[in-house]
Amino acid sequence: MERFGFAISKGRQIDYDANSRHIAGYISEREPSFRVCIECGCCAATCTTGNFTSFSLRELHILLKRGENESVRENIKKCMLCGKCTLVCPRGVNTRNVVTLARQAFQKFPADAV
């Protein structure tokens, strides 16, 4: 067949309804301040780990809420719990507890982590 350089690309939209929000639910139930994050990125800007890697707590917040858990599970281990983000967060999110709860949730419900 003649190739004209055109192709029908695969659909790129993400079906969020297929994702599990269980982990996000687990966190916000125990740490209500998780809900008030405005994804401003202050935490990622000051982050100790972010200084060495591309780790971003803001990104993890967004992914958790969308239920895209897999990359969160891989990355959340990198946080050092140093607490800088808690101090700079304009919304008073208890970020250290969010990270700790997320780690806990991934251990408790490995099936949800995909």
Binding site: T48, N51, M80, L81, G83, R96
Partner: peptide
Amino acid sequence: EKGGVCCGRPLMLAGQ
């Protein structure tokens, strides 16, 4: 000076 690694105590306080 250019930002270091945390000393580790915050993790200890979190039981890790």
